[in-house]
């Protein structure tokens, strides 16, 4: 930690998410039972208002780690502790319905690809991700976010299936940010964006940090990474085992 951190308020010292001795390997039954170890004994944490960037060469397991933190991949061993309603819950061992609950209130995820019910309007997709708002307030919030992300109003009522990659990514971002989750996991949030839009996303991430949100992200774009990350966590490739 550098001196920059000492100015922060106490909240920044509250650990929001912690991986302890996390290991993960994939066992591919269809490829003759080949085992692909990806993570071994990984430990990291992120505090409130802090942004940790996962770094490492391509294929090293950054996305695997991020997905494991979300419970999307099953942890092989170790613990993934998430501060949920004041208590640390271990996603690695929690019941599925606890993970569902935790994702609703605490843990948000912005993936690279948009995966939604087809034929639902962009604004509704975003509004549905809002928590604890009236339908009207959620819609208003969704419109505001979409406009901020330069999604023109004429697109709001269209389903995003036909949108460009960059537009879909921004729908995803709006969905991730409207929830107001105390913890946000970002997988390449700016990959398909031009500079102007990238700067908007940077501003949104900084605002989120200001609001005390803990962020773990994968940022290929070093400019973005330098602008938002407080720390880096290196994910290094493991030796493949047969």
């Amino acid at each position: 930690m550098n001196t920059h951190h000492q100015d922060r308020n106490l909240a920044s010292q509250v650990t929001m998410l912690e991986a302890r001795n996390l290991s993960k390997q994939f066992l591919l039954h269809l490829q003759g039972g080949v085992r692909i170890p990806v993570l071994s004994d990984a430990s990291m944490h992120v505090s409130a208002g802090e942004c940790v960037a996962l770094v490492g060469p391509s294929g090293a397991g950054k996305t695997t780690l991020l997905r494991s933190l979300y419970g999307n991949y099953r942890a092989g061993s170790g613990a993934i502790l998430v501060r949920h309603e004041g208590e640390m819950v271990d996603i690695a061992t929690a019941q599925p319905r606890e993970v569902v609950r935790l994702r609703v209130k605490t843990l948000g995820y912005v993936s690279q690809f948009l995966r939604v019910v087809p034929r639902v309007a962009a604004v509704d997709i975003v509004a549905q991700a809002a928590i604890g708002l009236t339908p009207e307030a959620a819609r208003a919030g969704a419109v505001e976010l979409l406009l901020r992300l330069h999604i023109p109003a004429r697109l709001h009522n269209l389903p995003p299936a036909t949108f460009s990659g960059g537009e879909q990514q921004r729908i995803n971002l709006a969905r991730g940010f409207i929830g107001g989750h105390p913890i946000l996991l970002l997988d390449e949030p700016t990959a398909s964006l031009d500079n102007a839009r990238r700067d908007i996303v940077i501003a949104m991430i900084l605002e989120a940090k200001q609001a005390g949100i803990a962020i773990v992200g994968i940022f290929h774009d070093t400019q973005v990474r330098d602008a938002v990350a407080d720390r880096q966590f290196a994910v290094m490739p493991l030796q493949d085992a047969a």
Partner: peptide
């Protein structure tokens, strides 16, 4: 969990 089973299936049949 739905997305876990579909994205990280463990059993040969699920895979």
């Amino acid at each position: 969990l739905t997305d876990q089973v579909l994205d990280d299936p463990q059993h040969p049949y699920t895979q």
